[in-house]
């Protein structure tokens, strides 16, 4: 140390520099999500301060340029498509996971996972295009206009299916081998092992995945925007045209000003809080939560 004093102090300085850079980068990366929340909250303040909160439910309609801000139909639309999509994707996704964990030959299970990863990688705008040109005409053949709750839910179900399937599979795979061997030793058949031993043991992980998928569904924009029809009305039937919150933001941000713009930010804030709550719930219920 003493023989190379200048170089040592140079090195110490370089190390300090590095520390500052790394801490700075981590502060930016770690603080970004908070910053986004605060920033969006700031932009939505004018609306939240000047418009009484109950007016989002009691105003006559959604005509923001005339100062009418009834946003409940869009909230209902978001919840409706997410719910229907989950009802479709959850059973199919869990079944796929059960299949590849307990019934499929290893090669087929691996192939299936690859395909599901591809499904997960297709951009939402491509799902929207496909839904618009393939699903919508088919739905319209049953009942016009085709664009609406059912089309949006179907496309959404396809998009969250990989999340459900991959998380459920991971949860099933992490079930303790001893438990499965015990079930086999008791002479339980595969169905019994899968349904009554593995599924209950993996239920926290599967639940966490379902919650995460719901969060995805709530926040999805492009695909639902392209197939939902975007008429502002309370969803009454599967064939109604509806406008989810995310689609509303995407449609109106381009020309919104003043209170209107601010309300759109407020709806983004609400969306973010919903998603945040779900993700927190998912993290808490996932088995890895205890690892830190």
């Amino acid at each position: 140390m003493t023989s190379s004093k200048p170089s040592a102090s140079f090195r110490a300085a370089a190390d300090r520099c590095l520390t500052v850079v790394l801490v700075g980068a981590a502060a930016i990366a770690g603080g970004l999500v908070l910053w986004i929340v605060l920033f969006i909250a700031r932009e939505s303040m004018p609306a939240l301060l000047s418009i009484a909160p109950w007016r989002f439910a009691t105003d006559a309609s959604w005509h923001p340029q005339d100062g009418l801000f009834k946003i409940t139909p869009m909230v209902a639309a978001t919840l409706a498509i997410s719910l229907v999509a989950m009802c479709l994707a959850a059973p199919l996704g869990i079944a796929t996971a059960m299949f590849s964990s307990f019934f499929a030959p290893a090669r087929i299970a691996g192939l299936l996972r690859r395909w599901i990863e591809i499904l997960a990688g297709i951009p939402s705008v491509v799902y929207g295009l496909w839904g618009l040109t393939v699903l919508v005409p088919r739905i319209a053949a049953i009942q016009a206009p085709g664009l609406g709750l059912l089309a949006a839910s179907l496309v959404l179900a396809l998009m969250i299916l990989p999340t459900v399937a991959l998380t459920a599979e991971a949860a099933l795979r992490s079930v303790d081998e001893d438990l499965l061997r015990g079930a086999a030793a008791l002479g339980l058949d595969r169905t019994g092992t899968a349904l009554h031993v593995a599924l209950p043991a993996a239920k926290n992980g599967i639940f966490a995945g379902l919650v995460l998928a719901t969060a995805r569904a709530l926040g999805e924009t492009m695909a639902v925007l392209m197939v939902a029809g975007n008429v502002v009305q309370m969803p009454g039937s599967l064939f109604d045209s509806i406008r989810p919150l995310t689609a509303n933001i995407a449609l109106e941000m381009g020309y919104a000003t003043a209170d209107h713009r601010s309300v759109l930010f407020a709806s983004g804030l609400a969306l973010m809080l919903m998603v945040g709550l779900l993700v927190a719930l998912s993290t808490m219920s996932s088995p890895e939560a205890t690892d830190g």
Partner: peptide, 25 residues
């Protein structure tokens, strides 16, 4: 742990919200 949790939260933010944020900022 805090930084990781915060990054996980960031990863879950819907893309349209990033759009709002990017547009405003």
């Amino acid at each position: 742990r805090w930084v990781r949790h915060s990054l996980d939260a960031l990863a879950a933010v819907p893309s349209i919200v990033f759009g709002l944020f990017g547009n405003a900022l």
